[in-house]
Nucleic acid binder design. Sequence first.
DNA 1: TCATCCAATATTGGTACCAATTTATGGGAA
DNA 2: TTCCCATAAATTGGTACCAATATTGGATGA
Lengths: 209, 209
Amino acid sequence: MDNLLEETIAHDEPDATQLILTDIQSGLFPPGVWLKQVDLETRYGRGRNEIRRALDRLAQKRVVEHVPNRGYHVYKADGKLADDIAEIRIILETGVVPKVVAMATDDDLSSLRVLAERFESLILYGTVLELYEANLNFHRAFVQLSGNDELDGIIAELRQRTSSAPVSQWKTRARIEQSAREHHEMVDLLQARDGKRLKALIERHIRQR
Amino acid sequence: MDNLLEETIAHDEPDATQLILTDIQSGLFPPGVWLKQVDLETRYGRGRNEIRRALDRLAQKRVVEHVPNRGYHVYKADGKLADDIAEIRIILETGVVPKVVAMATDDDLSSLRVLAERFESLILYGTVLELYEANLNFHRAFVQLSGNDELDGIIAELRQRTSSAPVSQWKTRARIEQSAREHHEMVDLLQARDGKRLKALIERHIRQR
DNA sequence: TCATCCAATATTGGTACCAATTTATGGGAA
DNA sequence: TTCCCATAAATTGGTACCAATATTGGATGA
């Protein structure tokens, strides 16, 4: 049997969890809306079981909330919750700065620069979701430089919980452009090995002020 | 209907996820062992479905690993993985120090002191699991002082992933006693509002050196 | 005697069905 | 008309069954 490799890859099965998550992040399912199992079932063409498992996982991730015998609805991450999550992100992303500063090579800097430009170029013609992904990729690449493989996952999880963000985060065009500039500035400061200013910038960047 | 409140509380149903997790942390299920669904089913007296859901959740938390058509086995968190997780904990728990130092009241300090003593008193006659819980409670109370409600959950999740730790973490009696002393020292430094030394101590404490 | 293959068994994972609960609808009484 | 209750529809959640896959044990042949 030479189909061992094929079989594992062949199936185009982005699992339902990811599909639902993407639809939440794209704004299709706004915060507060109830996710009915039959609807999801037909929309994604998956069995009832997989949908239930996906919803349970999203509930564990606290992207949706589960109310027994009522169903699952998209969680609203706002007010204090959003602030708390932002604060944790700040602690983590500034916390790795020393290691990143110490370990980043010239190649790493170029890669970051590319990702920063990618984000910038999507401002004009990219969708909200593409912009969101590009931003995510930049930040992921940044923390990856610390060499800590787990950190990436933790931060990704945190970002997912501010699910309404993609729509509401970059309200104005001006704010998006500023984000793009800040990305470049982050690379600049990293190149200059200026950990102190870099931390301050990251904090401002995440707080969006 | 006056049984609304009763109904939600009455049932003594610590869900299977927690039960399995506790058994993993107590060392009953050592790292690497395969968790067979029927066994868990009979052991906890729960339906097949609940067991499956529990295993899936633990797999999401990366406490166990899922191998398709083979089952679930306890994850071994050692080497780089354990180091990465410890590092994240250090970033988080030292990261909140400024806020904790700023916000802690005298009452908070007393509460912490009680928890530190609780841990200390369990050294002699407590089980490993009780010691683990007491230690957890101390650290939770500490980060709770930051006022960030989400941080607690994140850290708890991280600790759970170093599941083999409770058994292997405190190898020697001397190490346990040092941990107890360090807890007290943390309260001392917090009382003195010495953030810098407190951060250093926490780092040493988590690294266990 | 040892390796290899095949059948028997055990285990996982999915599907379909049914019970429990909630929400919507409509009719009747104040 | 408005409120309330009963009945019907819709939705969730659990249980049982069955198919797919892996593992074990034994027989066969070199």
